[in-house]
Simulated scan of single mutants.
Amino acid sequence: MSRDWIYLVPALCALVLPGVHQVEGIEVLTSSELEAVNGTDVRLKCTFKSTQPLSEETVSVSWTFRPLGKSLEKSIFLYHKQAYPPKDETFKDHAVWSGNVMNGDASITLRNVQFSFNGTYSCQVRNPPDFQGFAGEISLRVVQKAAEGQKYLINWARIADSLL
């Protein structure tokens, strides 16, 4: 009986191992918190690194939004080969694609932010066969006007974004 196992184990390995693929993860990076002044534009920056070659054909990006105090997320933006802007009335004409997947950038820009935009934004990136275990999350706080020191930081952030 024990001699049968000697032949059975290699046979099983030969059948099973070719179907096993090593799967890597995509690293997604976002800032954790962001503040924007009501009525201005803000870039929700999401960058990623994949172990697989990047291609417009394979990379897909999805953005979701969870309002403050709510537990349900809703999809607000999709990108796969092209941008699919939101149809949701809250973000329609506000959320625009500002990324470049070939450079590892999955960012969107929110134009003319409103107080209803307060909440958590999640960025998920897929590049098969890579998978992503964790979404990048940004907590956005929309304020009436920036604090004095914050104005300085916001202006420098806009200058830095325009240079990228």
Rank of each mutant, 00 (worst) to 15 (best):
residue 164 L to K: 13
residue 164 L to M: 11
residue 55 S to E: 09
residue 13 C to F: 14
residue 106 A to Q: 08
residue 47 T to K: 05
residue 102 M to E: 11
residue 120 T to L: 06
residue 22 Q to P: 05
residue 67 P to F: 00
residue 118 N to T: 00
residue 77 F to K: 02
residue 19 G to F: 13
residue 70 K to N: 13
residue 24 E to P: 01
residue 84 Y to M: 12
residue 56 E to L: 12
residue 48 F to K: 01
residue 95 A to R: 03
residue 156 W to R: 15
residue 163 L to T: 06
residue 89 E to N: 11
residue 23 V to C: 09
residue 49 K to H: 13
residue 107 S to Q: 02
residue 62 S to L: 13
residue 58 T to G: 02
residue 15 L to A: 13
residue 124 Q to G: 09
residue 153 L to M: 12
residue 19 G to T: 11
residue 65 F to T: 01
residue 23 V to T: 14
residue 146 A to W: 00
residue 157 A to Y: 06
residue 8 L to D: 12
residue 23 V to S: 08
residue 25 G to M: 05
residue 151 K to A: 11
residue 119 G to A: 03
residue 123 C to M: 04
residue 78 L to G: 06
residue 162 S to P: 04
residue 16 V to C: 09
residue 122 S to F: 00
residue 118 N to M: 00
residue 45 K to P: 06
residue 76 I to A: 04
residue 29 L to Q: 12
residue 9 V to Q: 07
residue 79 Y to G: 01
residue 29 L to M: 10
residue 126 R to K: 12
residue 99 G to A: 02
residue 104 G to Q: 03
residue 89 E to M: 09
residue 56 E to K: 14
residue 4 D to F: 10
residue 89 E to L: 12
residue 46 C to L: 08
residue 7 Y to W: 15
residue 96 V to N: 04
residue 85 P to S: 03
residue 21 H to V: 08
residue 79 Y to T: 02
residue 28 V to D: 01
residue 65 F to L: 08
residue 72 L to G: 10
residue 62 S to I: 13
residue 15 L to K: 01
residue 83 A to T: 06
residue 84 Y to N: 09
residue 143 V to I: 08
residue 113 V to F: 02
residue 32 S to W: 06
residue 152 Y to K: 14
residue 141 R to S: 15
residue 138 I to Q: 02
residue 147 A to W: 03
residue 157 A to H: 07
residue 152 Y to S: 15
residue 12 L to P: 05
residue 85 P to C: 00
residue 96 V to F: 10
residue 115 F to C: 03
residue 68 L to Y: 10
residue 149 G to M: 08
residue 97 W to G: 07
residue 99 G to I: 01
residue 14 A to D: 09
residue 45 K to W: 07
residue 62 S to F: 08
residue 67 P to S: 01
residue 33 E to W: 04
residue 134 F to N: 11
residue 37 V to F: 03
residue 74 K to P: 06
residue 59 V to R: 00
residue 78 L to F: 14
residue 2 S to C: 11
residue 110 L to E: 06
residue 64 T to L: 03
residue 52 Q to G: 04
residue 56 E to S: 13
residue 34 L to I: 05
residue 37 V to Q: 15
residue 16 V to D: 07
residue 67 P to M: 01
residue 100 N to V: 03
residue 108 I to V: 11
residue 153 L to W: 07
residue 41 D to F: 03
residue 20 V to L: 15
residue 112 N to A: 10
residue 151 K to G: 10
residue 67 P to C: 01
residue 77 F to W: 04
residue 107 S to P: 09
residue 77 F to A: 05
residue 112 N to F: 04
residue 139 S to E: 13
residue 77 F to Y: 09
residue 159 I to V: 11
residue 141 R to H: 14
residue 122 S to W: 00
residue 146 A to R: 00
residue 65 F to H: 07
residue 50 S to V: 02
residue 134 F to T: 12
residue 161 D to L: 05
residue 83 A to H: 07
residue 12 L to N: 00
residue 27 E to Y: 04
residue 126 R to G: 06
residue 82 Q to L: 12
residue 53 P to L: 01
residue 135 A to G: 05
